[in-house]
Design a protein around this nucleic acid. Structure first.
Lengths: 219, 219
DNA sequence: TCTGGCTCAGAACATACGTTCACTAAGGAG
DNA sequence: CTCCTTAGTGAACGTATGTTCTGAGCCAGA
């Protein structure tokens, strides 16, 4: 973690600011730094902070107490975070549709887990994006296995062939399938040669979202 | 995001602290809150902060300027972050092995991208963990497609059947395959019925790591 | 009606904290 | 040698900022 162009004192200050911020969730004062680094005067701290600021290591807000921000540590999750936290809201059946507790099942319950996905890696991720853990192997030919997590983006319109979270209103059941429009009915097609498609009327179907990503743990 | 048990003013204060902290990376002062929320006195802010603290919404460090920390907002990436940042270091051939520029190709180059993965979701993720983008479809039967990203964990020992990043020392080539020991030679097995395995001597093989996860973007 | 708790206003106080200034000391260039 | 830059010392200054005190209005319950 050593950086060129900084003398030991400046590195020490930089590290202290990072640790302090991590532990207490707010930056240190100049006098905090002074004491921690055994510096005799606040002016020395100020002097070295100027150097760190010119070097682009930190950003300072003048005349503001604790107005220090450490920049650009790429291993520090707090720095430059552009990702979005995506909750894993529950399970989705990739085989037979299964009933779920309530219609806003995925709105109320606590997430099973939470993922942090980088912006831009999977199209646009926003606050509506969520994830579901897949039960069953009906989408195996689409490379989605039992236990995988699918990232779901609520969308207004879907195209034929999209993998969607399909909600059957009458049956109050949800399932993960590919969607194809066929006249006034809709075919929900599994991606498994041993399974048959389901046909539903457009009225009965509500598309909760479209799968924009898949995440699998192989351990 | 509304929370029960809080009057509008307290909710407004809580939201302001969150937004302020997010934008400036340090918490606001009592007077910052006062102005932003149109409160006539600092004592009112202090009063309401006490209530928020008793309710467990924030933590305060007494006598410390900006000593406020918002607790338990699961959408705030900074709160309770336990994930690790994983760099996508380059490409890996899942088909024919391909030569790579240098032996420490994946150590020196800039990452193509960066992922933030939650601790615990994929076994143990540490600072050595990295990711590679897959070229080719030879692992298609293992549900790894062209363009997928595999999460790789350097390990000391591998078991037969593990999906590994295999480095052929003589050929200076890397490939993604399943590994099986067969006497004094090793079989590198694609997961694609149209492709044949590769046999190498144990001396010639260096296992760079084991695949512990797969991430796919379907948009 | 009185009382007590909740919420707030305004002001004053003490100290925390960033800034600045004058001065010192060690090197390097001319 | 002087002149300049880098690095540090110690103190003072002024504002920023958390704390506290007095008192008000409101409302439910005795």
């Amino acid at each position: 973690m050593a950086r060129k162009g900084l003398n030991p004192r400046q590195q020490q200050i930089l590290e202290f600011i990072q640790n302090f911020d991590e532990e207490r969730s707010y930056p240190p004062t100049i006098r905090d730094i002074q004491q921690a680094c055994n510096i005799s005067s606040t002016s020395v701290v100020d002097y070295n902070l100027h150097i760190l600021e010119r070097g682009g290591y930190i950003r300072r807000d003048r005349e503001v107490s604790r107005g220090i921000e450490v920049l650009g540590d790429s291993r520090d999750v707090r720095a430059g975070m552009t990702g979005t936290r995506v909750p894993v809201l529950g399970y989705i059946a990739a085989g037979e549709p299964v009933p779920v507790p309530g219609q806003d099942y995925w709105g109320a319950a606590e997430p099973l887990d939470v993922l942090d996905l980088p912006e831009g890696f999977l199209g646009k991720i926003n606050k509506d994006t969520y994830a579901l853990r897949v039960k069953g192997t009906s989408m195996i030919d689409a490379l989605v296995d039992d236990g995988d997590v699918v990232i779901v983006q609520p969308v207004d319109s879907v195209q034929d062939g999209d993998m969607v979270v399909a909600w059957l209103q009458i049956e109050k059941e949800a399932t993960l399938k590919r969607l194809y429009r066929e006249g006034d009915r809709i075919r929900l097609q599994p991606a498994n040669s041993t399974m048959e498609p389901i046909y539903v009327s457009a009225d009965n179907l509500e598309v909760h979202g479209k799968v924009v990503g898949v995440l699998r743990s192989t351990v």
